[in-house]
Design a binder for these strands. Structure first.
Ligand SMILES: NC(=O)c1ccc[n+]([C@@H]2O[C@H](COP(=O)([O-])OP(=O)(O)OC[C@H]3O[C@@H](n4cnc5c(N)ncnc54)[C@H](O)[C@@H]3O)[C@@H](O)[C@H]2O)c1
Ligand SMILES: NC(=O)c1ccc[n+]([C@@H]2O[C@H](COP(=O)([O-])OP(=O)(O)OC[C@H]3O[C@@H](n4cnc5c(N)ncnc54)[C@H](O)[C@@H]3O)[C@@H](O)[C@H]2O)c1
Lengths: 250, 250
DNA sequence: AGGCGCTTGTGAACGCGTGCACAAATCGCG
DNA sequence: CGCGATTTGTGCACGCGTTCACAAGCGCCT
């Protein structure tokens, strides 16, 4: 039990006072903001100063109406007849996502996958910093990867004291994932990204997101199956198929 | 343009005749079926013969009503007062997902991430088989990884002839992803799993799914930001937070 | 055979997300 | 200074997905 949905359905919403008034963004919107952000960075590097909703939507692979509605939830940062100021919009989205402060990431499980993640430069460039690599295997402990030394999982509490860990990444086998998650929670981590193919039970105040390769492949397999059974039918050639672009993770 | 949604909104649906009558499953349902399948395999190995919707829902991390509705779309494979036959349900879900036939996967880009994917045993155990590893770097070509030899990307057409590729996986830098996608499509691949952080343009009959780490982290970052700004407010301790478990991929 | 408890399957209500279509707003130009 | 072109911001309607609640069905026990 205990796994609910994000549901910001708590009725606390925005009070009369202008204390902090955190924007009560729809979950679907915040899932797309990173995509907009990446598109904006690309456009900015391309020398663009302003961008229309149509242009940005194309770059992000979404409908322009959806994009405008998403951005309108952040406030009015566009100019009618002109478009959005790229630099300003980047700043706003980064603020909302909390990327203005570099967040510390702790990676647990330096195996096949963990090794690749540890060497990924896409972390640093997006505002994250891996501050610790942890593993239970004594043979792995001490190994140096991209300037970081692998430490033993038992040192997690110590690591948490040295630096406030914002996000814990689990890249251990499924059998160890729940135990690792428990330890992360005990150490004060309130956001977990789980690569192990299993369900995690965590307290209500902890956010868990899961990335599961096999699920993605199986969904694609379904559509292959469907397409195959369709082309084998009367209908005709193609035309019935539907392209898509499901955003999933990174 | 060109990127629409899955939308099986084509009105062809189920004809009067019982030709193949492919179940017109909601997209949200098929995204959860792999999760149910994994839970069922675990339960089966645990010696369970039958399982109630409540039990299976708990194992898969979802609401039991949702699970029953999902399964009801496949037909009536449960027994009232008893539950679902584990083996039968596994068989049915695997059939619907098209996992009864082993699907060939082609991995393009054997770098940091591609190396990890190539060595992942989670593919084989879920009904997939990597049949080719491709890369553009001459230094990588010829390398042996887990019994497969890395071949040059130019050999893709030849590979496609040798074996029908069901799914292409892109693990190249973002700059090369669109070109690789085009080559995959030309080679006849109609399902793509993209790890590069960019939007792909593909014909309407090709399915693309994307896995983006950075997006996952940024979503978690947002919730960290939100939680931080909440605990700093009058309210009280916690209780307002919301646990969750977003399924994403694998 | 009948009744009782348990579990599935589903009708109905609700809420969220999407997309259309347009009014409001801004810029540039004559 | 006013007008038209352009683009944002949003009210509204629709469809999908989720959840509740319960009738129908099944097995077991007496
Ligand atoms: N390799 C991939 O491409 C891939 C893809 C998708 C998902 N996954 C999943 O990611 C996870 C890791 O996969 P992998 O291929 O890297 O496996 P791996 O066996 O290569 O690595 C697992 C690592 O976790 C460490 N570990 C085990 N128990 C631990 C514990 N209690 N605390 C800390 N560390 C512990 C092990 O020492 C090992 O180094 C698995 O759950 C796998 O299903 C892997
Ligand atoms: N490493 C990670 O943990 C990680 C995580 C998430 C996403 N990604 C993304 O996955 C992709 C790969 O990451 P990586 O760390 O493995 O990078 P990498 O540079 O280590 O590997 C890229 C590989 O692609 C090959 N390649 C380049 N152009 C090619 C082409 N046209 N055809 C075929 N092969 C080509 C290169 O030779 C190289 O071997 C990137 O887009 C990255 O953003 C990586």
């Amino acid at each position: 039990m205990s796994q609910q949905r994000h549901g910001s359905t708590s009725g606390n919403g925005a009070r009369a006072g202008a204390v902090s008034a955190f924007p009560d963004l729809p979950e679907a919107t915040i899932a797309r903001l990173p995509e907009y952000l990446r598109a904006l960075h690309n456009l900015g590097e391309g020398g663009a100063d302003t961008i229309s909703s149509e242009g940005l939507a194309a770059a992000a692979g979404v409908n322009s109406a959806k994009l405008r509605k998403d951005l309108s939830h952040l406030g009015s940062y566009g100019t009618r007849g002109v478009g959005y100021d790229v630099a300003l919009l980047i700043e706003q989205i980064e603020y909302v996502l909390g990327l203005d402060q570099r967040r510390a990431v702790c990676l647990v499980g330096v195996g096949n996958l963990g090794h690749a993640l540890a060497g990924y430069d896409g972390f640093a460039s997006r505002g994250f910093k891996i501050v610790a690599l942890l593993d239970a295997d004594p043979a792995k402990v001490g190994e140096r990867i991209h300037g970081l030394i692998v430490r033993h999982i038992d040192e997690l509490p110590a690591v948490a004291v040295e630096e406030t860990i914002a996000i814990g990444v689990i890249a251990t086998p499924a059998g160890a994932a729940q135990a690792v998650a428990d330890e992360l929670v005990t150490a004060g981590v309130t956001s977990i990204l789980n690569f192990a193919p299993c369900v995690l039970s965590v307290p209500a105040n902890v956010d868990v997101r899961k990335v599961d390769l096999a699920i993605e492949l199986q969904i694609l397999s379904f559509h292959e199956h469907r397409k195959a059974s369709l082309t084998a039918l009367p209908g005709g050639r193609s035309a019935t198929g539907a392209g898509n672009q499901e955003a999933v993770g990174s």
